[in-house]
């Protein structure tokens, strides 16, 4: 089976058409690939490089430059805790510590059941509602430990389906 599906290629053609040069669609296409597979694997970079007629190194350079690209598989829910200044002052360290304890994993790790991956991120641009956590494509704001427990519970039981899943 070819790595890039026909469906992807169709979408790619639409995305490329937005720009006078199709390589400008590299980042949106990588985001699309990541949406399909959860992460951007080496062979995905390879396939995309060939598809866009770009040197592999250009694609790899881009993937390693932008933080949103996961280079390894992540859990079903990717918990991304903001720890920048406003969130820090609003208790991000406690939020992070609580998550670590509750999930039994460190930053960058995934729970054994494959449900949660825990990451820290820099400013998410929602400082007025600090502390903030992004789960997949959704923001969870003004977090408290209690609120966090509810969110985790809901995610675990599929009651709160994160966007894109």
């Amino acid at each position: 089976m070819p790595f890039l599906t026909d469906e992807f290629k169709e979408k790619a053609a639409r995305l490329c058409a937005k720009y006078p040069r199709k390589d400008a669609a590299l980042i949106p296409l990588l985001l699309e690939l990541q949406k399909e597979k959860g992460f951007v694997a080496e062979d995905a970079m390879d396939a995309l490089a060939k598809f866009l007629e770009l040197p592999y190194a250009r694609v790899k350079g881009v993937v390693t430059f932008y933080t949103m690209f996961n280079r390894e598989p992540v859990g079903k829910y990717h918990l991304q805790v903001c720890r920048n200044i406003s969130c820090h002052m609003a208790g991000a360290p406690d939020i992070l510590a609580h998550l670590k304890g509750k999930l039994g994993i460190a930053e960058g790790e995934t729970t054994r059941d494959g449900l949660f991956t825990l990451s820290t991120v820099e400013c998410l641009g929602a400082c007025g509602a600090a502390p903030v956590m992004q789960v997949n494509d959704d923001y969870f704001e003004s977090l408290t430990v209690e609120k966090l427990n509810t969110v985790l519970d809901d995610l675990k039981h599929g009651r709160l389906r994160a966007r894109g899943l």
Binding site: P55, A57, R58, K60, G61, T64, F65
Partner: peptide
Amino acid sequence: KTSELEVMER
């Protein structure tokens, strides 16, 4: 024009 090399990460 072989473009093998790139700066990775940041």
